[in-house]
Amino acid sequence: MSAVRVLVVDDSALMRRHLVQLLENEKGLEVQSARNGEEALTLIEQFDPHVVTLDVNMPQMDGITCLARIMVGSPRPVIMVSSITESGAEATLQALSLGALDYVQKPGGTISLSLEQVADELIRKIRMAVKSGRRTARGALSSARPLAASRPTAAAASDVPTRLPRPIARAAPEDPPGLVLIGVSTGGPLSLEQILPALPAQLPWPVIVAQHMPRSFTGVFARRLDKLCPLRVSEVATQTDMLPGNIYIARGDSDVLVVRRAGRLFLTAVPASETHAWHPSVTRMVESAAEHVPAERLLCVQLTGMGDDGAEAMATLKRQGARTIAQDEDSCAVFGMPHELIRRGGATAVLPTHAIAGQIARWLNTASLRRAG
């Protein structure tokens, strides 16, 4: 198999050298580097990299401008390399909305030691980017299938894990009429920025989102979404009421749970579970909701991302009466999480990004909001 070509773009000579050395030590990678966005655009024509790692802050042409030019002229997977500051988070989220596939944070401290901390993550994301290269964010926007063409695919019975049945959840009169639960990872910011602003302001159920993202990003992301959405968007950092007309973003590097205290339901942020691989954990969010809310009053949405976080929990709820949506392959940056839900027979509907908000609104307008006795 031919080598994977990677272009490293960073204005720091020291950072470029360490990144190039780190990647050249990895078998099967061919690496070149550029000092700024203008050099990067020239090298993209000459070197034709499979993947670009792109610094945010650079002279002459910054990373955001360069990314926009890449996505228009020669779209390919781009991984942003950004600082952990609030301004770095804001710029990275802007990059993700423009079509960057993913990002890696620059830790503080000595460059060589810092890069060792993120080496495995960067290499893993480069490998993932190569596999998903044909579905750049630009392509995802333009290749969504018509609504009628998407249908759930049933999994073979032998593929569906079995679990002991859970006790049936009961609702209290003070509970919200239902909950919308959204799980998402790689490629999520772009998908969420298309779906959440399209939800109606009068949505009768609260929306809870577990987006795999570090703590330094989720507060910035919630504020960004709040400016875009007719619904109010906030980060869950402490015990929080769940109100209709609100979207709740799980705090990064922790997990969000639905809990009942003094007879009422709340959301709360808890330390990340060591037994779960991804955080905020979609599985823990969904399973905690299932403990307190009847399945028919839960609507689960599994969006783009690597792995299977939340797939089995959502599939279990679907078998108990919940409605579920899996994002379709063509509109995903990475089809892993939705594919795992579909494979388990857990998708009521498989839809492109642009059709998901409308389906949620239609189901909630027609769903029975009866209180469970």
Rank of each mutant, 00 (worst) to 15 (best):
V209W: 04
H50Y: 04
C300I: 06
P75S: 00
P161A: 02
I79E: 05
A290V: 05
L298I: 07
I249Y: 02
V233T: 05
M306L: 10
H50Q: 11
F221K: 06
L101W: 00
P176D: 11
S83K: 00
I111Y: 03
E116G: 14
L141K: 11
S185P: 05
Q194N: 12
L243G: 09
Q46C: 08
F221R: 04
E90S: 14
L341V: 00
R170F: 04
R138L: 14
R151M: 10
I126F: 01
V9N: 13
A157F: 11
A34L: 08
M1F: 05
A137Q: 15
R223M: 08
A355H: 14
E39S: 05
A68N: 13
F217T: 10
P146N: 13
G183Y: 08
L19S: 01
L225D: 04
A289W: 02
T136R: 11
T53S: 06
R215H: 07
D62R: 11
S281G: 06
L317P: 10
M337I: 14
Q32P: 01
T238L: 14
Q202S: 14
E86I: 03
P271W: 13
W205V: 10
G187R: 06
A100F: 03
L364F: 09
T316P: 00
T53P: 12
S87N: 15
I123G: 10
L7D: 08
V258W: 02
G37Q: 01
P230Q: 06
L192H: 01
G346E: 03
K227N: 07
L299T: 01
A155P: 02
E39C: 10
Q60W: 12
E90N: 13
D10W: 11
T324C: 09
L7N: 00
I111Q: 01
R127T: 04
P200S: 14
A172H: 15
V9P: 05
A357K: 02
R251G: 07
E24G: 03
G263Y: 04
R261D: 02
P189M: 02
A3P: 00
L265N: 09
P59M: 15
I325H: 03
S254Y: 03
G133Q: 09
A357D: 08
E235S: 03
E86H: 01
K27W: 11
H276Q: 01
D255P: 11
T240I: 10
L225K: 09
